[in-house]
Design a protein around this nucleic acid. Structure first.
Lengths: 114, 114
DNA sequence: TTATTATGCTACTATATAGTCATACGATTG
DNA sequence: CAATCGTATGACTATATAGTAGCATAATAA
């Protein structure tokens, strides 16, 4: 605790907060294979326009997306693919938890048979 | 998008949500060097008792902590040190952002001198 | 210019949850 | 058993924010 200043920890918390919304993760997934404009993101996620716009702003302010106006439309792109490493790690952890739970269920099942 | 089911994404979002609170990160940091009981966690974080207890429950339900009653007190322990890898990655990303921002400021400064 | 399309902005509502107080529970001790 | 210590829980308030509707703005086309 003492070694990590509270302000730094708060920034980390804020970063996680940005990633803690299903809609925003959907947007990030939509951009996984490259830049897309707002309309395309709306189509791919099925979210409302104003809503998508809001989330794009939040993600951009967090430094996760880059905004690139191009003619009439605006393209958004992921700046740091590290995001997907984060998701990867969380997914692995969740999988392990599921495995352990199913193991536990098996054991319980075994006990019931006795 | 289509390749990742929405329910899986929602689980990841929930996981990030658990980590998106400063108080909970403080608790995790307090447990970084090993198991502690609730009283010790309260002392180290400076948070209220009821509050700590609540956060401990959330962290335990998320599978991040393990609960171990021991006599009168209850010890909590981190189950998956991967948490700290996550924080590490986020910190690195934040540092890079800061560096880029300071670079940008330098450039602006240079322009102003002309 | 006017129309159209793409995006952003400003309230507003509804919901979730952090923190706190008071109380309850559970294990140990006398 | 009663008392006490450590922890958990329920009720409550205050705050934050997701989603939405409607309007504003900017770029292009007719």
């Amino acid at each position: 605790m003492a070694q990590i200043p509270i302000s730094a920890l708060a920034q980390v918390a804020d970063y996680f907060k940005v990633l803690s919304e299903l809609s925003r993760l959907q947007v990030l997934c939509a951009l996984k294979d490259g830049a897309k404009n707002v309309t395309e993101i709306i189509e791919e996620t099925g979210l409302g326009q104003a809503n998508v716009s809001k989330h794009l702003k939040i993600l951009t302010q967090a430094g996760i997306l880059k905004r690139q106006p191009q003619g009439v439309s605006v393209y958004y792109q992921i700046t740091d693919p590290m995001i997907f490493d984060l998701c990867e790690l969380v997914c692995q952890s969740l999988e392990i938890q599921l495995q352990e739970q199913s193991q536990a269920l098996k054991v319980l099942d075994g006990l019931r048979q006795v």
